[in-house]
Write a protein that binds this DNA or RNA. Structure first.
Lengths: 205, 205, 205, 205
DNA sequence: AATGAATGAGGTTTCATTCAT
DNA sequence: TATGAATGAAACCTCATTCAT
């Protein structure tokens, strides 16, 4: 009725905002019309902005990833001077917080067939980035020698699992402590008892 | 038209067999009618054997789990005399093989909303079983002290991730080697370099 | 399983008994299998006794009609010495009681498309019988001259409606009083106020 | 394929028109798809106009009731100066014509379980309106004292029955004459023989 | 560019009836 | 005769996507 003329970018942004919010709350049950209604647009307008439902999900995902990117870029940046031991726990903390914040959007993006149809591009794929980080840490002599690519994937799998557990009811502190311990045992050299304690504490405060 | 009269068990088994096979090949796209057609039955027959589509998936999953069960039960059994170090890698090997063998059934059962609606019962949930195993290994003095429940979940997450990677194209040997190393570093005491090498070799041969 | 060999008549009777009971309680929602289960028979046995669902309903109806028949035959019998004024109210009483006793069977038999497919045979059709009664009453000089066939139908329509009203919550006494009054005004000659009072009282005690 | 874009009201009206026509001809056997096909619409379009099959029937019924409403409103109106004696027969005439005109739609709306699920709202329920009319006629001294509510129901029951009889083959004139006589005997005071004759004649011409 | 009515394939499920055993 | 597994047509409804306006 009241036709609001917006730039395509504005339109798209409004739909994305609505979709993000509603997906977070409703998950898989969400329909195209719910989004356009919430955004004050007509159903057909959806398809002037997105070719397909999956395209919307990709855009929503990109948007979320962009939001976390600024927080993790400095941590992942191999050119920056790194304090290696607490680095992984810190990244874990940030990523777990990111995942938990997704709410039901998490299952839509990462526990449905969508992410099989549309895997993350390598440059944002956490496994890849952890692999690069591992490599840098190894070069710096801070991490033990592990095959970077598969191990990077394992690291992120543990982080992801921890987020899922917490979302499913596991105590946050307990899960994070176990994760931190595991990450440290995996990559740090066992020089004295310190490696298993202080980083953990650092990471959690 | 040509009506075949079977016992409910036989019919159910034929439908399960067909469903298993087709799900393995087609994944999410499969419909009730595809299964009955493949099994030489009428559509309605499906509903004499299964109340609902999800019930079928549960039955298919149970069937697969039963097949792997005999192979992992002795390994998980905490009363049996265990050779602790190679135990986890061996379990990993079996479970990865199990997951890979699922084909597209894997995504249907474990990467879709189905498994959010119907999580595995705790007694077969790998995370729980790894927790028990960890506890036993710790009591035996073979494993380091780690919080069993969350760590059990992490262990299975790594195994699951490894299977996914391999299914996605990662080299099997490489992925398994990284997994074995990670598992060993996580649970074994770093007494000598042996712990990181020989078990790996054992597990992979 | 435990196959009970009965004569066809016994079988049929058991199914009828179960069907009657369950239809009274469940109405339209009842299914073939509910009946056979309740009668301790297999589903297919139903079709050795009745060709079709409608045939069952016909049999149930006949059975109910036979039960009421002995109570109304003497009242309808035009050869018996009749006390004309209270006759219609008395029949109304019996028929209303009969209908109310049907419970949900009533809607199945008389408020569904079944009774359009299978109208009552004329010899038990109340309209026809009321027509005969009217004729006899007129011959006896007790009833006014009314076209017997259509008026017989109207009389039963009022009785039926009264039963429906009571089933729907109208007060029994009030509904019956109005019905009795209407019947009397319809067929009796208005000789004195008596005709509207005493028969009513007779009928209701 | 050839898509016709109509306003919701137009589309709804076309579907209603088609449904009305087909229900009149086919009765209970009609399916959603028959209607949409006849109306040149797709199956799904049905559900943009009606939530449910029952909702369609309600709309069809309302439509038919609205058509008869203008003809009976003045007759039922208790504020209008009434010529009481011929009023009921005239209403009967109109209502019988209305019912007969329904064709098989009649059984769908009034002899099926639909009307048990969705009884008429009281303000259009004939029994209620006849009750009001009786009350007004009694206040005007034109009708005898009868309990208005149950008697109103009886009056409509007779009218309904008469329509059913005629639909089933009874001669129209004969049935209507009997009905008129019955209505008059029921509500009019027996002052002279006139009450039973002239109104009848009036009503039928 | 925006609208929202229209599409139509697809989904699950029910149950009177049939028929091989 | 009795069984109960099997049939399969039909029902209702959803919703991503299209397209006339």
């Amino acid at each position: 009725m009241a036709r609001r003329r917006l730039t395509p970018e504005q339109r798209r942004e409004e739909l994305l905002e609505a979709a993000d919010l509603l997906l977070q709350a409703c998950g898989t049950a969400l329909r195209v019309e719910d989004i356009t209604t919430a955004a004050g647009a007509a159903k057909g307008t959806f398809y002037t902005c997105f070719d397909t439902w999956d395209d919307l999900l990709i855009a929503v995902r990109d948007r979320r990833l962009a939001m976390v990117e600024q927080r993790i870029t400095p941590l992942f940046d191999p050119t920056a001077p790194q304090h290696w031991p607490p680095l992984l726990p810190r990244l874990a903390q940030v990523l777990v917080a990111f995942i938990l914040d997704l709410g039901k959007l998490h299952e839509v993006l990462f526990h449905s067939t969508f992410h099989l149809r549309h895997p993350l591009p390598p440059e944002v794929e956490p496994a890849t980035r952890f692999a690069a980080l591992l490599r840098a840490g190894q070069a710096a002599g801070a991490y033990v020698d592990l095959d970077p690519e598969p191990t990077g994937a394992l690291i992120f799998a543990m982080i992801h699992e921890t987020a899922d557990s917490i979302a499913a009811g596991t105590d946050y502190e307990r899960a994070m402590r176990a994760l931190t311990t595991a990450l440290n045992r995996l990559v740090l050299k066992p020089n004295g008892a310190s490696s298993c304690h202080s980083p953990t504490q650092d990471a959690l405060c």
